[in-house]
Nucleic acid binder design. Structure first.
Lengths: 193, 193
DNA sequence: ACCTGAACACCGTTCAAGT
DNA sequence: ACCTGAACACCGTTCAAGT
């Protein structure tokens, strides 16, 4: 009883982020309360405020980590020597991450968080986009910027629709061949000329 | 004092929806409380429950009306005789609606609402998608379904990114020529063969 | 049939006080 | 330096009671 509790060995901040991420992926963001997170971490209601200015700051940190994970997934997904195949694989990796972490992905693009108020989060998002951006070379392609944005919009849109079960009636959303068939002609167009 | 209040002539339901939509577009969805809506409508805290089972039901009705408006915007946007031009115009109309009603558009695709629990909302969403779907004829094109979904994903993704100010650093998001330049090659690919 | 008042079980956030 | 206890001003939802 007199010994300190086993978790958060002086690292309550880390513990809060970890609990929050778990709650989000399990029960959804609307089910997450800062008080509940504190409860699960075994601390008082006010304790989180020693580490985060607000609930939003905690959510922003969870989202930031999400972008880092997505960034890694994209890196791993684009290794084919064939540029077209590589971008297609990378797009599928993007969709795979979103579908494997639907509520985290939603949070990363959620309205709850004003990105301009969280520079770390914004930077993580930019770094992730940069992976797609690197696929298009402005030196040899005058439309490189437009293509990169088109690519991001496409995969983000399909990911969002799939996550929200908006496609259930129209397509097999388990990341299987149907999704690839949807992407193929569009990714090809992005690589044309 | 003995005469009834001027608004909601027995139509509190309509008044609640109208107030809710206003609050959402003005202050954002996180700022909307059912108690606040009741207050603005001049009724008691419990009154909305005579017309909606829950806050979520009210939000679902606002979202449903949003889909009807988007549906109309798409209808008006696709009148050109040239099929390619028509689909491009329609895509721009989609983006225009989202950017003119950002918080409403977010609500329409928000995680706050489980669409499977609100058949009216789901149906309105399907009817809107059907406008895009009608652009592709399964009788003459074996990939009609895939193209329609690709098109929806593309415009939805670009709309979402634009709304969340994710594109500010990379593109002019006022619906001007830049957005059109992004869409053009992809819409062309959707119409190919 | 439609609305109110009061209550219940929650929130996010603050702040003096403890160690 | 880090955490607690108690408080403030809110929530969504329910339910007996009023007209």
């Amino acid at each position: 009883m007199s010994t300190s509790k086993p978790f958060h060995h002086g690292d309550l901040r880390k513990e809060l982020v970890s609990v929050a991420r778990e709650v989000i992926e399990t029960d959804g963001i609307d089910a997450l309360s800062l008080r509940g997170v504190a409860r699960q971490a075994g601390v008082s209601t006010a304790a989180p405020y020693r580490h985060f200015d607000s609930k939003e700051k905690l959510l922003a940190e969870v989202a930031r980590q999400g972008f880092e994970d997505l960034h890694d997934a994209l890196d791993r997904g684009g290794q084919s020597p064939d540029p077209f195949q590589s971008l297609l694989d990378q797009s599928m990796a993007y969709l795979g991450f979103a579908m494997a972490n639907p509520r985290l992905y939603r949070l990363m693009f959620a309205s709850h968080i004003d990105k301009t108020k969280h520079p770390d989060l914004m930077e993580a998002g930019e770094r992730t986009f940069a992976v797609l951006q690197a696929r298009f070379d402005p030196a040899t392609d005058p439309h490189a910027a437009a293509r990169a944005i088109g690519c991001w919009g496409l995969v983000h849109g399909l990911a969002s629709l799939a996550i929200d079960n908006q496609l259930d009636a129209h397509v097999q959303t388990d990341g299987g061949p149907h999704m690839r068939a949807i992407l193929e002609p569009l990714v090809r167009a992005l690589m044309a000329h």
